[in-house]
């Protein structure tokens, strides 16, 4: 219930109407969107019960290693009602062709695989918000100072998921496990996404805001 209340509002990409369509424009729009989403994610993390009691250093380490998984999981959840389209934002939905033109076809295919997985599981909002928090707590950062405190946070979120499943999904005693088994693919997809946007950063043709750059560099 805390996580449902903490769930951020809808976000909009607001592509620049004066810029002609191009792959650079699409990537610029996505990087600008990600930068604004990162601000929202950092605010959101502070509402996860137990997160703010971690040291500031550990809060930073978890966010630096998990931010792309959180971004992608949000895209996945927004895209569930759609067919073969990714909802990066309410006003920015990309199909296969648009993804190909933007050089994001590989990412499109990977994220769509996740979408299919969650569609099959008929994932619910309660499960999505809990999985997002688990992705943050379980981000395997190598710079954690207080492992016990992070483990406690993981345990509390894991318990919340199991409580939800045992009360709402008695028909499938292994549903919590099935949901957790989607995390490796989320991790793999997020790693691919970070590497791809880092290579775009190196090419230097797409403007990127400071927070996005900071988080990108922290990850590589």
């Amino acid at each position: 219930s805390h996580l449902l209340v903490a769930e951020p509002e809808k976000i909009y990409a607001m592509p620049d109407p004066t810029m002609p369509e191009s792959d650079i424009k699409a990537l610029t729009t996505l990087c600008d969107l990600a930068d604004r989403e990162l601000v929202v994610i950092i605010g959101w993390a502070k509402h996860i019960p137990g997160f703010s009691t971690l040291s500031l250093g550990d809060q930073m380490s978890l966010l630096q290693s998990a931010w792309m998984e959180i971004l992608i999981l949000s895209i996945v959840f927004r895209s569930l009602p759609y067919e073969d389209e990714l909802v990066y934002a309410e006003d920015y939905i990309m199909d296969e062709e648009h993804s190909r033109l933007t050089g994001l076809l590989d990412l499109y295919v990977s994220i769509l695989q996740l979408v299919r997985k969650y569609k099959k599981l008929k994932v619910e909002k309660e499960e999505f918000v809990t999985l997002k928090a688990i992705a943050l707590a379980n981000s395997d950062s190598m710079h954690i100072e207080d492992m016990e405190a992070v483990q406690k946070l993981q345990d509390a979120l894991h318990e919340a998921l199991q409580d939800f499943e045992s009360s709402q999904h008695q028909e499938d005693p292994r549903r919590a496990g099935k949901l957790l088994m989607t995390l490796p693919l989320l991790r793999q997809t997020a790693t691919k996404a970070v590497q791809h946007f880092y290579s775009i950063k190196v090419q230097g043709k797409v403007p990127m805001h400071k927070l996005f750059l900071e988080m990108l560099e922290a990850k590589v």
């Binding site: 950092i42 502070k46 500031l56 560099e217």
Partner: peptide
């Protein structure tokens, strides 16, 4: 830590 100024500042801001 200095390199991650914005994240540091945003986490410290009270909501």
């Amino acid at each position: 830590k200095e390199k991650h100024k914005i994240l540091h500042r945003l986490l410290q801001n009270s909501t």
